[in-house]
Amino acid sequence: MTANVAVPSPTKRDEFAPLPPIKAKSRISWSRVLTLVILLWVVIAFVVGAATNERLDWGAVATYLFDPRILEGLRTTLVLTAVSMAIATVLGVVLALMALTKDPTPRAFARTYITVFRSIPPMVQLLFWYFLAAILPTITIGIPFGPDLVTFDTNLLITQFAAALLGLSLGEAAFLAEYIRGGILSVPRGQSEAAAACGLTPAKTFFRVVFPQAIRVILPAYGNSLISQVKNTAMVFVIGAGDLMTEAQLIYSQNFQQIPLLIVVSIWYLVIVVILTQVQRRIENHYSRGYTRRTEKSPARRQPLTADSDRPREVTS
């Protein structure tokens, strides 16, 4: 069988041997029906089981979902996520730029920072900053072996919230720095040369030409990091930083309704992550400007095989 038999040309049809008529494929796929039945059964069994089990106190879930303490914890979780990501992003950009300069000193600094902070588990970092107050009652900024300039009381400086922020953002910055560095490197050198040739300063070149294009590459990894970070904030309950998990734990340590409260917490994390995923999709679409042809709105739309573009390429003299 040769491939050209499948595409009979209307004008030369007679030159080919006649084909048997084509019968359309059956619309019902039995394997798909079977998959549907099995998965539906699993889901229904789970939902019914969960709903009818009295020990899972759904009444308590409903009561605590909007409990003021839980909502206060939710607020803290959101603030922790937002502020720690903001710090990590700025620090990540700075580290990425340091790692990319020709100057060996900032490069070595960035490399060391990234290695150290990527290696230590965030939980350890969190506890480290929290207990730092115990061993270093004051932090002094001054000239080494010289006079002191400022002295802070560590216990005042490093509150639970501050320790949580440090623990969550310093390590995250190391990961983001690597994503950002990769994104910047993915922008072809010709782009920055063209910008320089247009009279843009290196700073303008970076912010107007390189970074906007790097963002497109960075965003998927960044979105994943943000979602991980939402969940990482739950760790701060070990230092009692007042997040969603801390509040839930405070409640169930008194009334022993661990499961309903953990369900409440899970529901809130699920809501946050679903919303963030939608936002991420929107932002990714925005930054794919110039990379996806706008005429191809839906990828499912079939293009005729012969037309290479749906807009005719005009001839200009």
């Binding site: 072809p188 010709g190 040369e193 320089a196 247009c198 009279g199 843009l200 300063t201 290196p202 110039g290």
Partner: peptide, 24 residues
């Protein structure tokens, strides 16, 4: 670099591979 950027404005450059800003 700022002065160099200003000096470069007396020249315009066309590259072999166009190098148009892809996001614009």
């Amino acid at each position: 670099q700022r002065t160099l950027a200003r000096q470069r404005r007396s020249t315009g450059m066309v590259f072999q591979h166009f190098d148009l800003f892809a996001h614009r």
